[in-house]
Design a protein around this nucleic acid. Structure first.
Lengths: 124, 124
DNA sequence: CACAATAGGGATAAATTTCTCCCTATCTGA
DNA sequence: TCAGATAGGGAGAAATTTATCCCTATTGTG
């Protein structure tokens, strides 16, 4: 596994949050787990763009940060479930706030984000 | 400048927000601008860990995403001010929510984040 | 038997972000 | 004159994150 060489900056609440939520898919992973999609394969079906490998890595990080917990059922084929911890559950309103802002401003966001691609990709 | 090779995933509000806020210092840059620290040199004094180079880059991205606007005063030595746009201002409550969660759980967050470093760095 | 589904990880490459070093310019003050 | 403050950017390295490919194992199904 990759081992960090530079210590994180933890000067304020925003930094602390960044450390645990900084990850391309983490917000959505947490969101979908909260919605009841607990098994890795389910989550991946909800987020087809993540590779299985990266999904595993981000789930493990979320687990290390005690936002989710992993339950292994000793059955075959294997079954694993991720659930929010109490701690992780406190994050849901925050994620909701973020997602809501994104939804409210979807059109404008899509516009400003795609600006930089409009010259490059004209075939859309 | 770096030119992205992979198109972003914009499936939901969370993705859209990620595209404009994903950046190591962006949340705090926006926060400090909102608090009245508008000049690059002021911002850097508030966030000593960013290099000036990266601060410039992230400011420019925020500007391209229409969250801040840049005003140049034709004086010498040069004076530049960044201000939140109306759009950027709508983000402040969201950032506040995020930061508040971080502050409320500061101790625990610090604990889980530093877990991975405790073995490596014993001199703290 | 061959294949899909399940969960997960190693090795490695590629993409992306961040950092470091150095350069331009102008004015003020010691 | 020299140092420092101001704003900004190029080139290239380093750090970090994400992606791709391939492998293990077991059970059930066609």
């Amino acid at each position: 596994m990759y081992e960090r060489k530079i210590l994180p900056y933890l000067n304020c609440g925003l930094d602390l949050v960044g450390e645990v939520l900084y990850g391309k898919w983490k917000l959505r992973i947490l969101w979908f787990i909260n919605e009841g999609h607990k098994r890795p394969s389910e989550i991946q079906r909800k987020i087809p763009d993540v590779s299985r490998r990266v999904l595993n890595i981000q789930l493990k990080e979320l687990e290390e940060h005690e936002l989710v917990c992993r339950t292994i059922y000793p059955v075959m084929p294997p079954k694993v479930e991720y659930n929010l911890t109490d701690f992780g559950r406190t994050l849901i309103p925050v994620i909701q706030t973020i997602g809501l802002w994104g939804d409210e401003h979807e059109e404008r966001l899509r516009h400003v984000i795609m600006k930089q691609f409009r010259e490059v990709v004209s075939s859309l």
